[in-house]
């Protein structure tokens, strides 16, 4: 039992990363019917921006110009990086996808892959081939709950992720911007007839998705402090799988499927050798998709942003 609970905690942490990234895939698909295949790399860019912001803030603190406890620095890092990374998303939409709004979907997919390569190699050119390590902002403390070991970092990661997801849910269901996003997912052709600027909503969707990916990147950096320019590829593809599994365009679906992916991976690794982890985990997911090709909350031939 403790063994199971121990893995459950780990699964929640992995699931948080996947779910946060999957949300961006799903939201963009929901309103524009395209998969932003550069999204995994935006996660990477977010992690690096977080690295830059955290390094900068700790340096200021070390020089005595900023008297803040480390946890405040971490919160600031997350918020500032989410804000900055949202502009990366807006830029990707504006330069990469908007010119292709009426082009065949395959062009947009290829563009996404190219943007991903540009972000990876751009990072390489900028910072060189060395890996960077994310500054350790909080000291790891391990709590023992009746034999289940939980670190403060894991609690923080899961709590921050859930808070962001709840905030997103509130935003999409309560604000007029969220309402416009849902409307756009249902029938984007007539949205301008309501006096709603399509391009603003599209940019906003990219901004939110990218900010969530940045949060995932920083949380990942807190748990696994080594960053490299290609870290977004595997995460991106796995989160993409989660978005499909949840049902394209479904916010709830992407969240649940992200966590499910984390669970399947961790529990497969619990039983089988870890080298077989992804092989077995993704075979299971393939099997689920054979029986539910539209995912948990997806509908045939439609792309609707739902809650």
């Amino acid at each position: 039992m403790t063994f199971f609970l121990q893995n459950l905690v780990n699964a929640l942490q992995w699931g948080s990363f996947y779910a946060l990234i999957a949300l961006g895939y799903s939201m963009v698909y929901g309103i524009l019917m395209l998969f932003n295949f550069a999204h995994g790399d935006i996660f990477m860019v977010g992690a690096y921006i977080g690295f830059g912001v955290a390094t900068g803030l700790t340096a200021l603190a070390a020089m005595g110009m900023l008297a803040l406890p480390n946890w405040v620095i971490l919160v600031l890092t997350i918020l500032i990086s989410m804000f900055l990374t949202s502009f990366v998303g807006i830029l990707v939409e504006r330069l990469g996808y908007r010119p292709l709004r009426d082009a065949p979907r395959a062009s947009a997919a290829i563009t996404g892959l190219m943007i991903g390569i540009i972000l990876e190699t751009g990072n390489l050119a900028l910072l060189g081939a060395r890996r960077v390590s994310f500054p350790s902002l909080i000291d790891s403390v391990t709590y023992n709950f009746g034999g289940v070991y939980v670190t403060n970092k894991k609690i923080m990661i899961v709590a921050v992720s859930l808070a962001l997801m709840a905030a997103l849910h509130q935003f999409v269901s309560r604000t007029k911007w969220g309402m416009a996003m849902r409307a756009m997912a249902f029938d984007y052709v007539v949205v301008p007839l309501m006096g709603v600027p399509l391009n603003t909503i599209a940019a906003l969707t990219f901004a939110i998705g990218s900010a969530l990916a940045a949060a995932a990147g920083i949380l990942f950096g807190v748990a696994y402090p080594v960053l490299d320019p290609y870290m977004g590829i595997v995460f991106g593809w796995k989160a993409f799988v989660a978005a499909i599994l949840g049902g394209r365009g479904s916010i709830m679906g992407a969240t649940l499927a992200g966590f499910l992916l984390g669970f399947i991976e961790i529990f497969v690794a619990m039983i089988f050798p870890s080298t077989l982890r992804d092989l077995i985990a993704y075979s299971i997911i393939l099997l689920i998709l054979v029986f539910r090709p539209h995912g948990f909350f997806g509908e045939a031939y439609s792309a609707r942003l739902r809650l």
């Binding site: 007029k176 309402m179 849902r182 409307a183 997912a185 249902f186 942003l305």
Partner: peptide, 12 residues
């Protein structure tokens, strides 16, 4: 917008 309520359609 069939996925929005009557009130939401009007507010949009």
């Amino acid at each position: 917008f069939g996925n929005l309520t009557v009130l939401e359609n009007l507010k949009l």
